[in-house]
């Protein structure tokens, strides 16, 4: 699979730029490029549902991140134990990648998935649910509990954002001071 490797190299280059560049706005734009590369990779991997969702989610994520970074400073301080921190992080990642190399050998070969559960879904999905899109049949019928949990997490995140940004607490502070 040459296409997916090229897309992955593009994503890695974008991620390195996003991590290392000093300007925050450039960093956010680079991570947007990584997300769009991921969307294209999903399209190559024959997952059109994921490609559409990743594309639109990436747009909204970019808007929210730009809202956070606009007109904010970037403290780029290299004081302290710079060498020790970098070396220990790189050592940890090298050990992690070495073990990952040995662990990945035992996975099934790329391009030959073990479809033990999914065989039932593919064969009986149309007759049991009547939906032509097998992914929709799985997330809303066979694995409905999964989607229910997702809805709960989304609800909790929305409530958390609304509780963090509300202005009632700040009014009390102003009354105490003035």
């Amino acid at each position: 699979m040459l296409e997916i490797n090229i897309l992955l190299l593009f994503m890695i280059i974008g991620a390195v730029i996003a991590v290392e560049v000093k300007d925050l706005l450039s960093s956010v734009v680079a991570v947007g490029a990584v997300g769009l590369g991921l969307s294209m990779a999903f399209l190559v991997l024959k997952a059109p549902d994921l490609a559409i969702t990743q594309l639109v989610v990436e747009l909204l994520c970019l808007i929210i991140l730009i809202r956070a970074t606009i007109r904010k400073d970037l403290p780029f301080s290299t004081s302290g134990r710079w060498l020790f921190n970098t070396l220990s992080t790189i050592c940890f990642l090298a050990i992690f990648l070495t073990f990952a190399y040995f662990a990945l050998k035992d996975l099934p070969q790329f391009g030959k998935p073990v479809m033990r559960v999914a065989k039932t879904y593919v064969e009986e999905g149309l007759s049991k649910t009547g939906a032509a899109n097998i992914v929709a049949a799985i997330i809303l019928d066979f694995r409905g509990y999964d989607t229910l949990g997702e809805a709960t997490v989304l609800f909790t995140a929305v409530i958390g954002v609304l509780a963090i940004v509300r202005r009632i607490g700040r009014k009390k502070e102003g009354k105490n001071e003035g």
Partner: peptide, 11 residues
């Protein structure tokens, strides 16, 4: 292709 990981990733 295997539809089960796609359904997990979508959420």
């Amino acid at each position: 292709v295997d539809p089960l990981p796609q359904a997990l990733v979508l959420t």
